[in-house]
């Protein structure tokens, strides 16, 4: 048995794992009966359906007739810098305020592309923060600190 369609096989495995995970997690809730469904009933049924679909998909990637397909290589730079920027933004917004957390978000995420240009990024930071100020602070009056709270207190 050889994996021919890697995308199908691993997608199937993923669904199988998710299905089993939901089945296991659902067992801590009352199952009930069909006439009196408990909170665990529907998730257990769905988890079972998904595990079956997962098996079906994974099996489809194994057969000799399956199309030979590999999974595209993952590039580390975009995903870590984009999501790292978002993570840092969420962490710093209440602690450092909107302006500094946006500098971090825009600065870090801008590095994710191969075509990074410092001048453009600096302009982006200034323009986007001004825009965010007008739209979110002044326009929608959102509740978050604009400057680091420890400075303004």
């Amino acid at each position: 048995m050889k994996i021919r369609n890697h995308r199908d096989f691993w997608a199937g495995v993923m669904f199988l794992v998710f299905g089993l995970l939901f089945i296991v997690l659902s067992q801590q809730y009352t199952l009930g009966t069909a006439a009196k469904m408990g909170p665990g009933y529907f998730p257990t049924v769905l988890g079972g359906i998904m595990a079956l679909l997962g098996l079906l998909i994974a099996a489809g990637g194994l057969g000799a007739s399956a199309q030979s397909l590999r999974i595209d290589r993952m590039q580390l730079r975009p995903i870590t810098l984009i999501l790292g920027g978002v993570l840092l933004f969420a962490f710093t917004l209440p602690r450092l305020g909107m302006v500094l957390s946006l500098v971090l978000l825009i600065g870090i995420s801008a590095l994710a592309t191969h075509e990074f240009r410092l001048r453009d990024t600096l302009i982006s930071i200034v323009v986007l923060i001004a825009l965010a100020w007008v739209v979110f602070v002044w326009g929608l009056e959102l509740q978050f600190p604009v400057w680091p709270p420890f400075l303004t207190k």
């Binding site: 933004f89 075509e115 979110f136 959102l142």
Partner: peptide
Amino acid sequence: PYRVLYPAILLFCCIGAYSINNNVFDVF
């Protein structure tokens, strides 16, 4: 160019997510 565009999309999504419940949990 896209390199200028996507940081702006990120910014609006992040602050948008925050504003749902005024909580960074939704950003996470």
